[in-house]
Design a protein around this nucleic acid. Structure first.
Length: 265
DNA sequence: ATGGTTGGTTACCAA
């Protein structure tokens, strides 16, 4: 089974990029964030024509929005709402083998990393706190689960281009990285990105639109993640990012993150 | 210290 997560930053604008990824990587399930499309405008016919029959989406106007583009049916689709808001930032479902799949778009929280001056950052911290509470209360480390998404946090030193210069930049502040690491530790989640790429190697999934040349400056961050719980550990086969997607026509600022597992779905 | 770009919507907000 191959699962991909991708912040598409408008599904309708980048439907041809989605087609290209599906042809290139042929995932069983593509998990999207920032679809920016309401459910009645979701490009279902187009995605079905790409060979993906099972579509699940939870969108809203202009912002946010998550989806599963799948070759296999996913049951018990369910959105979680955090921090007292109705944002379309999560959906979960159960795969045919019983694994629970969670797809998150965690608030970016920009621009200043100050919860008093910046309500967006306060929302992000509260979202993280409630997320940790929800998993602690409702799930166990022995549950077969995969968690993917744009978590908007680069937890480790080599998940950003400069640890020192990013410490006060939203996505790499201790308030955020401590919370993400605690969430990971609680249920013993395995970070597949770092399972397959050593900690001392730079690994990014996002490059800003604002760089003159994203490749040359290479000021990336690893904001997108795929985690798995312990029962799936010995099934993990490979994990990588599709960096070339950042160079496609009208690219998303995020690239797809891939996990392959030795599991039939 | 600042501005740099993009997308959705349609005058700015979110990232």
């Amino acid at each position: 089974m191959k699962i991909i997560t991708w912040n598409i930053n408008s599904l309708r604008l980048r439907i041809q990029n989605v087609k290209r990824l599906l042809e290139l990587e042929a995932p069983d399930i593509l998990c999207l964030q920032e679809t920016k499309v309401q459910d009645h405008d979701f490009p279902a016919a187009m995605l079905k024509s790409f060979g993906y029959e099972h579509l699940y989406f939870h969108g809203q106007k202009s912002y946010n929005g998550v989806a599963f583009i799948s070759r296999v049916p996913i049951r018990d689709i369910h959105p979680l709402k955090m921090a007292g808001r109705e944002d379309s930032r999560h959906m979960s479902g159960i795969l045919p083998d019983g694994t629970e799949l969670h797809n998150f778009y965690i608030p970016a929280g920009v621009p200043e990393p100050d919860p008093i001056a910046n309500p967006n950052f306060a929302y992000k911290l509260r979202y993280m706190d409630e997320l940790a509470e929800w998993f602690a209360k409702n799930r166990k480390s022995r549950d077969k689960m995969i968690l993917v998404g744009d978590l908007n946090i680069a937890p480790h030193e080599n998940d950003v281009w400069s640890h020192k210069q990013c410490l006060k930049v939203v996505s790499h502040t201790p308030a955020e990285t401590d919370r993400l690491k605690a969430l990971q530790k609680d249920l013993g989640w395995i970070d597949s990105g770092r399972h397959f790429t050593p900690m001392d190697e730079k690994l990014y999934s996002w490059w800003s639109y604002r760089a003159e040349d994203w490749q040359k400056s290479d000021r990336g961050r690893r904001l997108d993640h795929i985690w798995a719980t312990e029962p799936l550990k010995n099934k993990l086969v490979s994990g990588y990012v599709v960096k070339e997607a950042r160079g496609w026509n009208q690219p998303s600022d995020h690239v797809p993150v891939v996990l392959e597992m030795d599991v039939r779905c």
